[in-house]
Design a binder for these strands. Structure first.
Lengths: 199, 199
DNA sequence: GGCCATGTATAACGCCGTTATGCCACGATG
DNA sequence: CATCGTGGCATAACGGCGTTATACATGGCC
């Protein structure tokens, strides 16, 4: 078949094709045969490069967290850490709504192959989480938040936004049902959490 | 094969077997053939009674919400609505931790068959949500919460607890990583949200 | 009796993940 | 240059899957 196309890094092309299939058709649309057709190779490519489909999905999860981290990194760091925190939350939500299937796989991977996240993936997610911890720490150092454990505070913010986004993705807070859920639910919840933390 | 065993309601036995398989082996362990073997019938039973596996899963989701509602109903209603709210949250979390796979399917169903929840399932979930709304309304009527939209307030509490539980199930707040995450993350978050609501 | 509707079992189709096998290209070695 | 070993690949097969077509059995109704 002479696939002497550029062929740059079959590994990366497989990860990107998998993320694309996941985003377009959801987890059920991901198969070694479709992947092989997408990248112009045989199904064996998945096994030589990753060992199997679950490992490929894990790589996609890492990719998803990397994209999320890129989105969060794009949020400018101003002199008002509290506004930065709000912007981080908004960027987090936007990323999830832009890649709903990928986001679902990142946090519900147990539903796909029946496996659990390994420490690597958890660490990948926690690295992203660290950006939120850093922003929280800046807010404390600026004297806006009372002194406290930045990780615990960031965990609260993460839980709140993540839970809201999950409900939104599941359809419980969809725009056609709750038109202004952001103003009525998300924002008051976050201001409630935050005002309890300010000095 | 003379399946003249009691055979009470093949429909219900299929739902229960599916919930059991889901709880034991996760979504990947759920198959028409295993179900048929479990209930002593052929795979056709799934199609005559439900139309297909996705519809059966939807029935299981409804069953999961019913169980959750039962758990929440078991929480006694005291004369302190705020304590009742806290007890509801604890019961919610306990139910999710007891049936992690089922809980994941209830909220991440997109990951299983690639389908979305229909209005029926959403309504089922919202009925459960209504119990939280009622408890919130009682808290307002008792003069503990300032007057406000009970649904919006309940949505905040739901988002917060749901997000925390999801992170916990995914392993980000697992006991071995964050030993006292409940005290450091969940409880402060909820008290923050709640103190912002008290009169 | 005959007739229909309903639920079932059987068997097949196509797709899936995974694996065994053989091939081929290529760098190292002499 | 010739040889060899090795890593990545295509091919083909195996078993399991969801789904469907089909034929059979059973029970109510005329």
């Amino acid at each position: 078949m002479s696939p002497r196309t550029p062929e740059p890094e079959v590994r990366q092309r497989l990860i990107e094709a998998a993320a694309r299939l996941l985003a377009d058709q959801g987890p059920s649309g991901l198969s070694t045969r479709k992947l092989a057709a997408e990248v112009g190779a045989s199904t064996m490519a998945v096994y030589t490069h990753f060992g199997g489909l679950p490992e490929l999905v894990r790589a996609v999860v890492r990719e998803g967290f990397t994209r999320l981290a890129d989105h969060l990194r794009a949020v400018p760091e101003t002199d008002d850490p509290l506004l930065d925190l709000a912007a981080l939350g908004e960027a987090y939500r936007a990323n999830a709504l832009d890649n709903p299937h990928l986001y679902a796989v990142m946090f519900g991977t147990a539903s796909l192959g029946g496996y659990r996240l390994h420490d690597d993936e958890l660490d990948e997610g926690r690295y992203t989480f660290d950006m939120l911890v850093a922003a929280t720490r800046r807010t404390i150092d600026a004297g806006i938040f009372r002194p406290g454990d930045p990780e615990a505070i960031a965990g609260q913010l993460w839980s709140a936004v993540h839970g809201y986004v999950m409900l939104e993705l599941a359809g419980y807070l969809a725009a056609d049902r709750e038109p202004d859920a952001v103003e009525k639910v998300l924002n008051p919840m976050l201001t409630g959490i935050i005002t309890a933390l300010v000095a």
